[in-house]
Nucleic acid binder design. Structure first.
Lengths: 200, 200
DNA sequence: AATTTTTTGGACCAGCAAGTCCAGAAAGTG
DNA sequence: CACTTTCTGGACTTGCTGGTCCAAAAAATT
């Protein structure tokens, strides 16, 4: 059962249209009819390309969005080797979420597809990749003697990921990027601190 | 139109029952029928006490839960005056969320009532109170010369709040409290750092 | 051109969940 | 004890939404 080029294009159109809609709209409820209207398709097509129904469709959107999040930062994430690069990365994140406003693409996804088994799996792997990149950046800075060696790169990377997630979530409630900025700046400051904390 | 004691009790029962259910169940969809069954009430009562329907009911639950979150930590939050107190607070948070598992009470609420105008308002005020408490703790430590004076208490408090939120959200996806622990430890370490970071 | 396969459109169905309504029980009040 | 008001139960309505089905259009294949 080969899929023609036209078919592939339609499928793509559905995924991207649904993603855009999910990103911009009320996270609460997105109906198949919405998606149908936006993407200019019919019920038949929706179920033709996603026999698993809504769950399968949302999962595909989640995969698509997860890729987008990482791709967006890839240029910066891959080269966190100087303080300037870290600050640039910080700026990109803040700017992006400021523009995007109160809607974390994955947050919306997780809100609706959180129940399905695959969705959280997607989020999990994305977070893991993200953390790996940040950890590599910290290690690079340690190799350059810009960050003290006692810092646990992996754990601190986890802190960054959690901080970003939380900052974005606060943004969703308050509409302000202040918290995101605060947590990023604080963590970067932590890396820059020349001495280890006194043990208690 | 006075409300009798019995009426007040029923209303309370509805809110608490709904809260418990929301905390434990699938965050996705909670129906009025679920709530009705759990609290042993009827449709008539639900709409008698919450004329605004589901939205009003969920809002009441959100207020209730927000209060619970703060009350739970009040003993610790109110006295962050020694490192030992900070570590105890950290422990309480981690333990609580570990036990509670993958369900942030407010996360679930926000997922369903996120659209309604009042819900995010509730979350916003709760986060603000929370931040105020943490900021007061940081200032107390600064007064005791345990934290260097250059630290911006308010901003760092924001970082804590964002970090906790993010840690919990990661917990919801991955089921692991590691990230929450990492971000709390890192931020506490930051406070303990005896020297300011080198300016770039 | 004939035929097979994929793609598309939309009518239709079934179930569920929010919300309405009203009658009767319980509880205050004079 | 009469009377008013609040409280409770549950049947019923209404609208929406995911999902099914099938026939026709469009491609691909021979």
């Amino acid at each position: 059962m080969p899929i023609t080029a036209k078919g592939r294009a339609t499928r793509q159109r559905i995924v991207e249209g649904a993603a855009t809609h999910l990103r911009g709209g009320e996270p609460g409820r997105v109906t198949l009819d919405d998606i149908r209207a936006i993407t200019g398709t019919s019920k038949g097509q929706l179920f033709h390309y996603f026999p698993g129904g809504k769950d399968e469709l949302l999962l595909a959107v989640a995969v698509f969005e997860a890729g987008r999040v990482l791709d967006d930062q890839e240029p910066h994430l891959g080269a966190l080797t100087t303080w300037a690069a870290w600050l640039r990365w910080r700026e990109v994140l803040v700017t992006r979420y400021r523009a995007q406003g109160a809607h974390c693409p994955l947050g919306s996804l997780l809100a609706q597809a959180g129940g399905t088994p695959g969705a959280s799996e997607v989020v999990r792997t994305m977070l893991a990749q993200w953390r790996t990149h940040v950890a590599a950046g910290i290690e690079a800075m340690q190799a350059a003697r810009e960050v003290r060696a006692e810092v646990d790169a992996s754990r601190t990377a986890s802190a960054f990921i959690a901080g970003i997630q939380g900052g974005v979530q606060v943004l969703r409630s308050t509409g302000s990027v202040e918290d995101l900025e605060a947590v990023l700046d604080t963590l970067i400051d932590y890396l820059r601190c020349p001495e280890s904390p006194t043990t208690c």
